[in-house]
Computed example of a mutant assay.
Amino acid sequence: MRTLNLKDYKIYLRDNGYKFTLKRLEILSFSVHYQYRFISVKLVIQHLRKASGNVRLDTVYRNLFLFRDIGLIETIFHEGENLFCLKSKLTTPSHFFICIKRSSETELDICIMHIMEFSLPNY
């Protein structure tokens, strides 16, 4: 599988009708650096404040949740905090094993939902 790069995410963002702003570029660039690992909003903000000095919390959250809504990133809620990770594929649904301690994920080659339907028929 080819690793996605910043250009791939930029094209996907534009194909979904959104502009590629400077803040979105900064957030995605930082996220690409941590590709396939979950990162916190706090880590993103610390990086952006070092890099450009001027960043608002609501801007970061708004963009991260936009990225989630259009399918650029995955989110999990762990120990009271949202964690974000760029998707390794942008077109097909994927299932992952997530290791919270190492802040990493491994894509599974099977569809967990089929197993869940069989194992939990009443849900």
Rank of each mutant, 00 (worst) to 15 (best):
H95E: 14
F96M: 13
L13S: 00
I39S: 01
V44C: 09
R49V: 03
M113G: 02
T75S: 13
I45R: 05
M116F: 11
D69G: 13
I98N: 03
H33N: 14
L22F: 12
D69R: 14
H78Y: 15
M116V: 07
I70K: 01
T21I: 08
K42Q: 13
Y34E: 11
T92S: 04
Y123T: 13
D8Q: 05
H47R: 06
T59E: 03
I73K: 04
S52G: 09
D8Y: 01
I100S: 03
R102A: 15
P93M: 12
F38D: 12
I70E: 00
R14P: 02
N54H: 10
I45K: 09
L90M: 04
Q35M: 07
I27E: 00
L6E: 02
D109F: 12
G80C: 11
I98A: 01
D8T: 12
N82W: 08
T91W: 08
L108T: 02
K23P: 06
D8S: 14
L64P: 15
L108P: 02
R24Q: 12
N63C: 01
L108V: 05
K7S: 13
D8G: 12
Y18P: 14
T92W: 05
Y123K: 13
Q46L: 14
L72E: 02
L83R: 10
F118I: 11
P121D: 07
N82G: 05
T21D: 02
L66E: 01
R102F: 15
S119W: 08
M116R: 15
